[in-house]
Design a protein around this nucleic acid. Structure first.
Lengths: 343, 343
DNA sequence: ATAGTTTACTAAATCGTTTTAGTTTTGTTG
DNA sequence: CAACAAAACTAAAACGATTTAGTAAACTAT
């Protein structure tokens, strides 16, 4: 009753030849090995007739490569990662690779567990945004020289490929702009954990800009919000922050979720953006162009990030003596209505 | 130099026992088979010492199940699919499954190719939003009774599990609302290919609402846009449409991308929403609450869609004599600024 | 006629597991 | 002290491919 499986052996048996022969023909190695053209055709025909499809699992086991890559991001539902994923998936498909996708939710434990799963599944390489702080954990988890590309976030003390943007410079530019149009009391919104390289670099850019303009840093103006609370739209901390420091005239938000939080809070708090509060955020989202007000943002080149990540990974998979690559891309500051001058 | 692989045999050899024993112990089948507690401990210890990780590929081959599922959506970068994906991935992980994700880009050829890839990779089941029109193609491609859940879009003539929403009713409700607040000339925006069940049901809902209110259908008011053009932000057709039919006072958009197109066009065309043109769209996006104007939309229960899809798939994987399940969920109409009364 | 080459093919090992069908040793019972 | 059961373990097959190391026959050259 069940449709019995079509394997190499099925074909071999039906044609009264060896599995070797069938495998050779189907892999295009027949000519090099002087297999009779007629026999070749017979095999090809039979394979088509039986609708033979090679079992990639068996193949993976034998060949030691699964043609599968792992993509481990913080949150696949965040448009930032979703768009990178799309590019990576498309490029991977072109190169004959499939993609196992997983989200760590910014949880170390989850990340470690998922990473182990990916490795047990024998993925050929991994692209990931790490949430980890300690390079030793990764060193221990990953085999030596395992093909890996860190994207968006690097990890100090851990040598690996990397693709990301110039976070510090980008943030600094944005803050410079805010200062130039008259803002002095500028808030900085970030997430816990803030040791994540991209976030800490953005903070460094913020601090550096203030320093360059001889503006004293007020640590109270730096607000670190809990990732899960933000994800669950619990904006109470931010609410309180804006109430506590009405003298803040501009905020810089370290990612797109925080910008949404600002829009939401501004609406309920009646603190008008940009009249009462200017806003610039890291990460551009399609709809930031159409929000009220439209949101000034730092756009990362998502397609290029995806392409580069995959490209580097594939290079390492091909080359045995491959040297690690780091790619730092530039961003674009899109000024819109949410940030405006003061006085 | 290379870190040699740790396999069952490594452990077996080091401990001078058989692979069988090691496998039994590591799979918790030792007690049932009366393996000495002491030996068990030795195996466990050695496994830990060598940091043994079972090769899931070998396991998959032997056991005939890979503990991997395929998720084939139209476009992973669309927040609608991204959010469903997130839920499915999380639930799958809980159940010990990994997820291979791919996007068809609404292309039949791509969908077929990706589907074949998933099957060759021996995924245990598939969740997909199909772009296909012809049930025979799927019937031919998939083994009989292959665990599959169609999500968002059903396929007439193809018996399978399904999870989606009551598209016709939802659309009809929205149109009813527009009519009740005074609109008569209501445009309907959809995408090619429009045989996709969710889109055609939404259209049916639109038509039905007009009929119920004795409003004659004007086919010119129904605009079908090319998916790829919209994706590439080529809104020229829509632009022309709105110019050609200035008498249209409200449009219903069949998905979120089209709503964005409307926002964009309205901005450049100076046709103010909702003063000159009301808008309600299918699919809610987080930022629709903060756009100018905020967008009235039909929100699908994304989490539930994801959960149900996976739940049904897992049930079929478990149960051998499983009957197909169909789950039609309700939506929620979120009225915001973009739709308002007339006269 | 013989050695060497080319053509055309195949048996068997291998990848790393799980599982079937045992075997051997020890212990218990009538 | 047989007979039998229980305890403790193992050899080998299996999953479905690839690949190594062949073999046999036909042809070519000397």
């Amino acid at each position: 009753m069940k449709p019995k499986k079509v394997t190499l052996s099925s074909i071999a048996t039906e044609l009264q030849v060896s599995k070797t022969l069938v495998s050779l023909v189907l892999n295009g190695k027949a000519d090099a090995l002087a297999i009779n053209k007629l026999t070749q055709q017979k095999v090809l025909d039979k394979a088509r007739e039986l609708n033979y499809k090679p079992n990639q699992v068996a193949r993976g086991l034998r060949m030691g490569q699964t043609k599968t890559l792992g993509l481990l991001v913080a949150d696949i539902s965040n448009p930032f990662y979703a768009r990178i994923t799309r590019t990576i998936e498309h490029e991977a498909e072109k190169a004959g690779y499939s993609l196992i996708v997983c989200s760590s939710d910014e949880s170390k434990e989850r990340e470690i567990r998922l990473l182990k799963t990916l490795l047990n599944r024998q993925v050929d390489g991994i692209i990931m945004t790490t949430t980890l702080h300690d390079p030793k954990i990764l060193q221990q988890l990953l085999p030596h020289r395992f093909p890996l590309v860190l994207v968006d976030r690097s990890l100090a003390g851990f040598e690996s490929n990397f693709v990301g943007v110039d976070n510090a410079i980008s943030a600094e530019n944005a803050i410079n702009h805010l200062i130039e149009i008259g803002h002095k009391n500028i808030g900085f919104l970030t997430l816990t954990p803030d040791y994540i390289s991209s976030l800490s670099e953005r903070k460094a850019g913020y601090l550096h800009a203030l320093e360059r303009h001889s503006i004293a840093v007020n640590n109270n103006y730096i607000l670190q919000l809990d990732y899960l609370k933000i994800k669950n739209k619990d904006y109470s901390q931010l609410y309180q922050f804006l109430l506590d420091y009405p003298e803040i005239t501009a905020v810089f938000s370290a990612n797109n979720n925080l910008a949404v939080a600002c829009l939401s809070i501004a609406k309920t708090l009646g603190r008008k953006i940009p009249k009462d509060l200017s806003l610039i955020t890291f990460d551009d989202v399609e709809l930031f162009e159409y929000t009220a007000p439209s949101v000034s943002s730092i756009a990362q080149p998502l397609e290029i990030i995806g392409q580069k990540s995959l490209q580097i990974l594939l290079q390492q998979l091909k080359n045995d003596n491959f040297t690690l690559q780091k790619e730092i891309l530039s961003t674009q500051l899109n000024l819109r209505e949410s940030s405006c001058g003061i006085k």
